[in-house]
Design a protein around this nucleic acid. Structure first.
Lengths: 142, 142
DNA sequence: CTCGGATCTTGATTCATTCAAGAAAATGCG
DNA sequence: CGCATTTTCTTGAATGAATCAAGATCCGAG
């Protein structure tokens, strides 16, 4: 509780119950989509509007307290691991997401072979594949 | 013309005028979104339904003739460069996209530090930053 | 040329997300 | 502590990319 309040205050964000609840929900459900977060928030704090959750998610993302990811074909998802330059593996079959530490360390990961004059501040990597469960399921079917 | 027909036939796809037109449009407008593609297609072939374009884009993507990319906060975009394992730089300010060859070559690019048991078949990299034009514009403002 | 199945047209629908206006709540100050 | 100011939340509607559905049309094998 107090931990989340401190995070909010440190970012100059007003501390409100919806914000604390959303922040807690994102911490407890990594990679959850907005709808799941709304559900999780309402378990602790009934009657929070979906609009409030959208607003809070945007505010927290802008402040850098959470990160928004949106893989192709998916709705927006959020996670609380920020600032550690990690990436994601996503299962093409079931959509499950797992964290992957950056193999290249920090700086090299930002290096593009030819940046076309762009000033690059982040490299986002998504590994696409099949998760263990879906691999097993596929083999059983054959 | 014939080139696109051949591509379609090689993938066991029926050759129709909407398909040839969409394939040409994607080749001529890299990173275009669906709406732009619909516009480009209709310049050559008036009265093509948007539904047809959606269907064709999906068929071409499934066949591997084009690639679909969908950066966070953007609608789906398509490009004709496939199979060469290249990546993208995207401007946070104006949304412009440029191609970047994979710095790591081919195989290493697919290597994750810990794959969590996932079978990885593709590594998608998006470099986020500011394009030359927007960088210049920002300096002039200061 | 003809048939069957794939593809396209037309029109409606879904659903994540955003917009808008007013009510409620949080912070700073007296 | 209590008020004023500003932000944040609620309610309700709107947007827009993408999908669904049913029937017409077209492609290509035989």
């Amino acid at each position: 509780m107090t931990e989340f309040e401190q995070l909010l205050r440190a970012s100059d964000l007003r501390v409100t119950r919806p914000r604390v609840a959303v922040l807690a929900a994102v911490h407890e459900h990594p990679h959850a989509d907005t709808d799941s977060i709304i559900g999780a928030v309402r378990e602790k704090l009934a009657e929070v509007s979906h609009q409030a959750v959208y607003d809070v998610l945007r505010a927290l993302t802008t402040a850098g307290l959470i990160r928004r990811i949106q893989p192709s074909g998916s709705v927006a998802r959020y996670e609380s691991r920020v600032g550690d330059n990690h990436h994601h593996v996503i299962c093409r079959s079931c959509g499950s997401i797992a964290d992957v530490d950056c193999a290249a360390g920090e700086a090299p990961c930002l290096h593009a072979s030819d940046d076309h004059g762009y000033t690059i501040d982040e490299a986002e990597v998504i590994y696409w594949g099949t998760c263990p469960d879906c691999s097993t399921a596929a083999q059983l079917t054959h």
